[in-house]
């Protein structure tokens, strides 16, 4: 029986009601973004006619539009170089579009101030295709970072990090420096870090690229749990095994454009 089912059940990302006691900063931020969403009842992620050109003239995305509702899980597929990573980077404000509008949680990302981008990013868990983990920090330290940024109490961090690492069968390596791990293990560290905060939005870039089918199943199980808890999840992948027969939406990018 996978470890995800043991222990404390995941707290759903949206489980913060105005009446519930919320003294922590994290919840306030979450509430802030939620209320915007509820007020306007718009898609959680709304990409409208976006074009992204890398200098000098590489068109990564052309007139791309995509709406993702709150609580949705969606697969973003397409060949290598189709622009999947670029789209995720645009949504997380790592890159800026040349044309078009990107709204997250009802807010135009082009108009966010520095502090607001920080707030938004605290609500996004992104598993990068190139992992972006710190090789000299331990697995535990890497995964704990998003929670530390939110000043969560140490006990909670320990509990939650262990929980996620267990779910990905990485708990036995938690005290090793991440640089010493295999690619597949590093990938799981990146996924654990994206999931640890139960963020409102998870962007997973090729999350199963280096994993065998058994571990891939664990990853998808983790995502499904988070999605059931209220997280919106966008998974960019060309691993058809993880979306075959799924009931979730699958969209396909080709040469920077969506195909029907």
């Amino acid at each position: 029986m996978p470890a995800v089912h043991g222990g404390r059940p995941f707290r759903p990302a949206a489980d913060v009601r105005p009446g519930a006691p919320d003294t922590d900063f994290d919840n306030k931020v979450r509430l802030h973004f939620m209320s915007e969403q509820n007020r306007e009842n718009r898609p959680f992620v709304d990409v409208v006619k976006v074009t992204k050109v890398y200098s000098p003239d590489i068109v990564a995305l052309q007139d791309v539009s995509l709406s993702v509702d709150r609580g949705e899980m969606i697969f973003l597929t397409g060949m290598s170089g189709a622009g999947k990573s670029t789209l995720l980077k645009l949504i997380s404000c790592m890159e800026r579009p040349n044309k078009g509008l990107i709204e997250v949680a009802g807010r135009d990302t082009a108009k966010l101030k520095k502090g607001e981008i920080q707030e938004l990013r605290q609500q996004i868990g992104m598993a990068y295709q190139d992992f972006k983990i710190l090789p000299r920090h331990t697995v535990f330290q890497n995964v704990a970072m998003p929670m530390e940024v939110l000043y969560r109490p140490g006990r909670e961090i320990k509990e939650r990090v262990n929980e996620v690492l267990e779910a990905l069968r990485m708990d036995h390596k938690k005290n090793l420096p991440a640089g010493k791990l295999s690619r597949g293990e590093q990938q799981r560290v990146a996924i654990a870090r994206a999931a640890v905060n139960r963020p409102a939005l998870i962007l997973a870039d090729e999350p199963t690229g280096n994993l065998d089918s058994e571990i891939s199943t664990l990853v998808m199980k983790l995502f499904t749990e988070l999605n059931e808890g209220g997280s919106t999840i966008i998974i960019a992948t060309h691993d058809s095994s993880i979306y075959e027969g799924t009931s979730h939406r699958v969209v396909r990018l080709e040469h920077g454009m969506f195909t029907a």
Partner: peptide, 16 residues
């Protein structure tokens, strides 16, 4: 440098 870059992506506040 690398750590600061990641902290930036994680939305760490300036004071953090």
């Amino acid at each position: 440098d690398a750590e600061l870059e990641i902290l930036r992506l994680l939305g760490a506040s300036s004071s953090y």
